[in-house]
């Protein structure tokens, strides 16, 4: 799925997407008229996670770079916003501050991309997540330590519409990145860094820029998460959350913003439906992830295409082979092996 660009920007029929956006916008705007306050909170949470997923779609889906420090970034944004709000700063200013600190943290992480490989970056960003977690617990004078911070009470309507306004802005920005020069450069780096370098692309700088512009998505997610919960503590940002974001974008479709939204929806909805049975939620999500990767490597956004492939496939070809042809890069030893087997 990495090799194939399935961004909605690139598909020729943009009309379908515009219609879908319009329907979604209407649904979100008018949902509060029908929904219970509990459901509204859940819809708001979908929006919260979708923003972070957008950032990861750009960085990981299009750039092929890892950021396993998403939970740390979220915590950073959440605590920045919450501490400012405690001191009487307005909601808007607090969220802007959360975004701003995202740029700083993104630059801090991105600098490492100048001399580390992708896998080492995964470890470094992961270390960053642990570091933030420990810092939050250590500076308990500022962050409230284990007991956390209670935010000023906001009305549910305000939270709901703030979140979805942010989702709209974030989606627009992410779309611009994917469609614009940054997206093109990131994809070039992802698909073949050496070739990109030969063509004169500043590969390391592109990676750095990728980290800088996507970290604010995560911190904004954190800032909004704090508003939606009304209360934050270190336990809300466990390292597992960083891995969860990867799962979210993979399940939805790693290069598609719609996929990020679908993944976020599943992430919020599945636990709601499975609270009664212990362990059922990770079982379902884990199984879903593995099955998606095997059956529809392009994620939920790829389901129609996968069905089409299945219907038109030659009689004797195995299912896995057909699907794999969509995932794997056309060149390389692994592909050669598959062809020969």
């Amino acid at each position: 799925m990495i090799a194939r660009v399935r961004s909605f920007v690139v598909t020729p029929n943009r009309r379908g997407h515009l219609i879908a956006v319009a329907i979604l916008a209407l649904a979100v705007i008018f949902a509060p008229a029908f929904a219970t306050s509990y459901l509204m909170l859940q819809i708001a949470l979908v929006g919260v996670f979708a923003i972070g997923a957008f950032g990861l779609v750009v960085l990981t889906g299009h750039g092929g770079q890892f950021n396993l420090g998403f939970a740390g970034l979220m915590a950073l944004g959440a605590y920045t916003a919450a501490i400012l709000q405690q001191h009487g700063v307005s909601l808007t200013a607090a969220l802007v501050a959360a975004v701003a600190i995202g740029f700083v943290a993104g630059a801090l992480l991105g600098v490492f991309a100048y001399w580390l490989s992708e896998f080492a970056m995964a470890v470094v960003t992961f270390a960053f997540g642990i570091f933030v977690d420990q810092a939050v617990r250590a500076f308990d004078g500022l962050t409230g330590g284990f007991s956390g911070i209670v935010l000023p009470r906001l009305s549910l309507n305000l939270v709901y519409y703030t979140v979805w306004t942010c989702v709209a802005i974030a989606a627009l920005l992410a779309w611009g990145m994917i469609a614009g020069w940054l997206g093109r450069w990131l994809r070039a780096v992802r698909d073949n860094a050496i070739a990109a370098e030969q063509l004169g692309l500043p590969v390391k700088r592109v990676k750095f820029q990728g980290y800088v512009v996507t970290a604010p998505f995560a911190t904004l997610t954190g800032g909004l998460y704090a508003q939606a919960l009304g209360y934050i503590a270190p336990s809300a940002f466990q390292v597992v959350l960083s891995l969860a974001f990867l799962v979210i974008i993979i399940v939805g479709g790693v290069t598609s913003l719609w996929g990020g939204l679908i993944g976020a929806t599943l992430w919020v909805a599945v636990p709601e439906l499975t609270v009664d049975v212990p362990g059922l939620y990770p079982i379902l999500f884990g199984a879903l992830t593995v099955i998606v990767l095997i059956v529809v490597p392009g994620g939920a956004m790829d389901i129609p295409a996968a069905i089409r492939r299945r219907m038109h496939r030659p009689r004797r070809a195995g299912a896995a082979e057909v699907d794999l042809s969509a995932v794997a890069q056309p060149a390389g030893p692994a592909a050669a092996v598959r062809e020969r087997e």
């Binding site: 891995l243 799962v247 049975v277 884990g286 995932v327 794997a328 390389g332 092996v337």
Partner: peptide, 30 residues
């Protein structure tokens, strides 16, 4: 799982193992 994914991108392997981790963790919890 992994035989069916052979030749895929490292990211796919990474996420597949995360999925496996979630699945086994869930079963153990249950």
């Amino acid at each position: 799982v992994f035989r069916r994914l052979r030749g895929a991108d490292p990211l796919v392997f990474l996420v597949a193992t995360i999925g496996l981790n979630l699945l086994l963790f869930g079963v153990a919890q249950y």
